[in-house]
Amino acid sequence: MFVEESLPEYLVPQEYVITMRESMLNKCPVSSYEQVCEVFKKELGETPDKVFDEFDPEPIASASLAQVHVTRIHDGQRVAVQHTHMTDTAAADQATVKFLVNTIHWLFPSFDYRWLVAEIRESSPKELDFLIETKNSVKCLENFHKLSPHIADYVYAPEVHWSLSTSKLLTMEFMDGA
């Protein structure tokens, strides 16, 4: 959950954080069930009702690039299924950031965040690929066991169901959280 205190004021003024939180971050789009089915058909060849024993078409969470559904796999285990949506807007989002950063720099030359455009261009494809994300999760756990064994038992990542996961669809152990 995004909280106002999560960004230091030297990066983003508090007024911007509050405005973003109120106008954008709590109003993310939700894909229709038909759109969800399209992702599943493309990625796994079947609709969610064929892949899972139960599938709640209402997402429990939605962000700008993905949303999460709770479901049950055939052995009865409850899992979280995250799928990308709105990825077609990624190019438009990048163009918007580039325009805003360049405009602000033109108006206020000392405010130079043009490096952010290149960073977003490089990182976006990686963030849109769930297989990269899950491999990083596995690597993170391995690193804790190797480098910080004294705290490794306190670090956990949900189990990934690899046969039900692709670059656009991620199925993992469901964990209640706050």
Rank of each mutant, 00 (worst) to 15 (best):
T89V: 11
V97F: 05
E133V: 03
A63R: 02
W106C: 08
D153W: 15
E133C: 06
A61G: 06
E58P: 04
N102W: 07
L147M: 12
Y156V: 08
T89W: 09
Y16F: 10
S163F: 10
D56M: 08
E54S: 13
D75M: 06
N136A: 15
N136Y: 00
V70E: 05
D176Y: 09
I104G: 01
D49K: 13
E5P: 02
D93F: 03
V17N: 00
P125Y: 03
H85S: 04
K135V: 06
T96C: 12
A178C: 15
Q67R: 03
I104S: 01
A157R: 03
C37M: 06
S137G: 08
D129F: 01
Q35E: 14
F55C: 01
P59M: 03
A63H: 03
F40S: 00
Q82M: 14
L44E: 01
R78N: 09
E142L: 13
F174H: 04
D176Q: 15
M172V: 07
T19M: 10
C140S: 15
N136F: 00
Y33K: 07
K27C: 04
F99N: 07
S167C: 15
L65V: 04
M175H: 13
M20E: 05
Q77F: 15
F99H: 07
S167W: 05
V70Y: 00
S167R: 06
K168G: 02
L164S: 05
L131P: 00
P29F: 07
L131D: 08
L107E: 03
L147H: 13
S124P: 04
T89K: 11
P149W: 08
V81S: 02
G177V: 05
F111H: 11
L128R: 02
E15S: 14
M175Y: 14
P149F: 07
V101E: 06
S110D: 09
V117H: 02
P59V: 02
H83I: 10
L170E: 02
I73A: 02
S163H: 09
N102R: 10
K42Q: 09
S148G: 09
S31A: 14
Q94T: 14
A61D: 05
K41T: 08
Y154C: 05
T84C: 09
F55Q: 04
S148C: 14
R78E: 11
E43A: 11
D129N: 12
S163Q: 10
L7D: 01
L128I: 04
T166F: 14
H69I: 09
T87A: 08
E133M: 07
Y16E: 11
E38H: 06
V117F: 02
V30K: 05
E38R: 03
D153E: 14
D53E: 09
D112A: 11
M20V: 04
S110R: 13
E54N: 10
W162R: 12
A63T: 03
